[in-house]
Simulated scan of single mutants.
Amino acid sequence: MTEKIGILGCGWLGFPLAKSLIQKNYEVHGTTTSLDKLELLKNAGINPYVVSLSASKIDGEIQDFLSQIDTLIINVPPRLRGTNQESFIAKMQLLHKEIKGSSVSGIIFISSTAVYGDVSGEVTEATPTMPNTESGKQLVQAEKLFQTDEAIRTTVIRFGGLIGPKRNPVTMLSGRTGLRNGHDPINLIHLEDCIHMIITILEKGYWGELFNGVYPHHPAKQDFYTEQAQKLGIPAPIYLEDSNKNPGKTVVSKNFLDKPHMFNTSIAL
């Protein structure tokens, strides 16, 4: 029997993930907030739905969407910057309530290594969360919301910074000066390895678990981003010579590597 997967949020990660799942003969249902993208999803073989989450309500075909799937991948990042700030945890509480009334039995919740905050040294899944940003704090709350519901099997993936086609963090840093912590290690993961991790978790049935998703190569920020800027032909970011010898945070994907699985795609584009 074909497993039915739902992806809430068919954006930069969700859309290619959906296409990869279809190639592996999963039945995929996906959401978008835009009517304009329905045809794009449909043409890719994704069963499309318009769903929009806010802190006060969920607009669109949420129950139709949830009624068609066995497993839900929640790929909705907090958007707590700028003028249109809304409570992420309020959105997740509304979503959780809808899930409780559906046939969904498994959840993969996409989170972030931001939940660890500014700790130093090696960080594994056993490291306590110490978020120092509002998005990190609300992600921790959302993780717990789903993890503590014993009626639904939830696995959390905390991805590092995302890199891949048409997405390179150096483009946001290009030309900036006076940046700090240039000696801190980077914690990035390529889009292809994000997809690889999610599909591996589905295929192996790693439910009720926690995974860090970071490629095991951690050069210093100033070295890596200078090299990336040169490759792209854009101005490199300029870092201060920090007197702070804090070693920074190195996130290790211990659970995934111990199983054992490998990462396949270099972050050096």
Score class of each variant (00 low, 15 high):
G60Y: 04
L139V: 01
S20T: 10
D36K: 12
G9H: 03
L191I: 13
P219V: 06
F159H: 06
T33Y: 04
I73Y: 02
L38M: 15
E143F: 09
T2N: 11
G208L: 07
K37I: 00
T133V: 07
Q228E: 14
V50R: 08
K42I: 00
H190T: 08
L94F: 05
V214C: 07
S54E: 10
L210Q: 13
R176E: 04
E39S: 13
T124R: 11
C194P: 12
F256Q: 06
N132G: 06
L80C: 01
K57C: 03
S54F: 11
Q93P: 01
T83F: 12
H96A: 00
G213E: 13
Q23W: 11
I62L: 07
M262Y: 09
I267S: 06
T127M: 03
E39G: 00
G178R: 01
V50N: 02
M1P: 11
I267T: 14
M92Y: 04
L232W: 05
N212C: 03
H29F: 10
G11Q: 04
D59S: 12
I89V: 10
S120A: 15
P165L: 13
Y239G: 10
E27H: 14
M172I: 01
H96Y: 03
K166F: 08
P219T: 05
V115T: 08
P235Y: 13
K4Y: 05
R167Y: 06
N84G: 00
E192V: 11
T177L: 10
P77N: 03
L21Y: 07
N25A: 12
G164F: 14
Q222Y: 11
E134S: 13
E192L: 14
L269Y: 15
S54C: 04
A142V: 11
G205M: 03
L232D: 00
S266T: 15
G101N: 10
N47L: 13
G205A: 02
L53N: 05
F146W: 04
L95N: 00
I58H: 10
L145P: 02
L173T: 03
P260V: 11
V119Y: 12
S103P: 01
K249Q: 10
V156N: 06
I186C: 08
H196I: 02
N212K: 08
I195H: 05
I198V: 14
I152R: 01
L38G: 05
P165C: 03
N47C: 08
L240T: 15
I7F: 08
T113I: 14
V156G: 06
T155C: 04
M1I: 07
R158Q: 08
H196M: 07
D223F: 04
P48C: 08
V156E: 05
Y225A: 11
T129H: 14
I189M: 04
F263C: 02
T32N: 07
I198A: 08
P48W: 11
P235T: 07
L8E: 01
E241D: 15
P219Q: 05
I5L: 09
C10N: 12
F224H: 13
G160A: 12
H196V: 06
L94A: 00
A236R: 07
V170K: 09
Y116K: 12
A126H: 09
Q141P: 01
F65Q: 09
Y206F: 14
Q63G: 00
